[in-house]
Structures are given as C-alpha cells and as structure tokens.
Amino acid sequence: MLRMKGVSKIYRTDLIETHALRDFSVEIDDGDFVAVTGPSGSGKTTLLNIAGLLESFDDGEYELDGVDMRGLNDDDCSEIRNEKIGFIFQSFNLMSDLNLFENVDVPLRYRGFKAAERKLRIEESLELVGLSGRMKHLPSQLSGGQQQRVAIARALAGTPKLLLADEPTGNLDSMMARQVLDLMDDINRAGTTIVMVTHDDELARRAKRNVHVLDGKVDDGEAYQPQQRENPVEVIA
C-alpha cells in the first residue's frame, strides 16, 4: 500500500536547517493499522503530511498504491489526495458554516460525483458513524466526539484506500476517544489501511503495528505482530 525508502525532509530558514525526516524507510501493507509514535518534534506529523501528499519531500522514494509519488504536480497530488486518501485531524477541521451533510459533501464535490451518488455516499457514511439523523446540524451543535465522527464520515465518504489520522482522539475525553477508536477498528476491519499518529500508548496498543519515530528516523524491524496487539510497544528507535 505505502512504501517509503530513504525519504528526507529538511525545513530551512535563514538561520537554521531542521531535518524533520532522515533517510526514512517504511512499508505498510494493504489493510494494515499502523500507529506512529514518538516524542514531540520527532517527525511524526511530517511523515503523515508526506504520506498524505500535503508536503513534498526532498529526497528518497515514495510509492502509494503502486504509484511513484515523485515529481507529481499540484493537480495530480490533489486528485490522489481526493481519491485515495482520507484525513482525520486532531482538531476535527470541520467547516463551521456548513452543516454535516455539506461538510461530508466537500471532498465528493471535488471528486466530481453526480448529485445522486454524493447523496448516497454521504448518507451511508453518516449512518456508519451514527449521525444520519443530524445531517442538517451545524458542527457547533455537536459534541467533540460527534464532530470527530463527522470528520471520519467525511474521510470515508470517498472510499479511500488509506486513512491518515493525526492524533484523532487528542481533543476527546476517554469515553469519546474509545468510541472513535472502535469506529476506526471497524473501518480497518472493512479493509481500509490506517496510519495513525499518536502520543497515547493505549491508542498505539490498539493498532496492529507500531512505528516509533525518533529524530526523523525509524527502525521498523518488526513485521505484523497481531499477538502483541494488547501488549504492544515493540518499538525500535
């Protein structure tokens, strides 16, 4: 599904160069559920941004779904993001002036689906997250957990192959966080590959596999280890 080899990313200012990722390599299979962990500033979010084509990389190779991601133009990146990748953010990132239906509709509009198909997809994805009865509500009328579920519905409506989640439960209390994680488990079981950045060890334990990032590097020597699912943190730094 996703293969990075020797990927580097450097942020440059007039005074300083920051190596966010150094010679970073990882392979993630179809249907995997990977938790990316590591201390603040270790490069987790940069990894997620590059994986989601939200940022370019300076060196190395990156293949997504068998397609080389090097040298793509903005239109290509936008199209791939729209068709193959779903995003879930810590702060939900819903549009406050659009209701739930319209929020989920946004990526589908950019995809160019006809109205009938959009409606079907929106209803199905909101049904999946248990919010089909609140389509006309504005995000401000929902709890944090509900808002994150809407964000998940938005990410899923386009049936992406890869779901990228950046601290998806970071702004939620434990009960709501559990609900969201249960939902992500279901999504993964249905076949969607998930890469989730988290600080939370408990969350990381729910993933099938962990990748620990430190100083922009990873040593992912472990293959899929389902038996460690409830006893995780087989981390190599």
Binding site: G52, L54, D74, D75, S78, E79, R81, N82, E83, F87, N93, M95, V106, P107, Y110, R111, R154, G158
Partner: peptide, 16 residues
C-alpha cells in the same frame, strides 16, 4: 488559511 489548507487536503487543487 485554515479553511484553505483543509480544502486543499480534501482534494481541492490550487486552480479550483
């Protein structure tokens, strides 16, 4: 800027 970033993440090209 946040809205623009979000739209771009959701697949909106610069041209659009």
């Amino acid at each position: 800027t946040a809205e623009v970033s979000l739209k771009r993440a959701l697949g909106c090209s610069k041209k659009r």
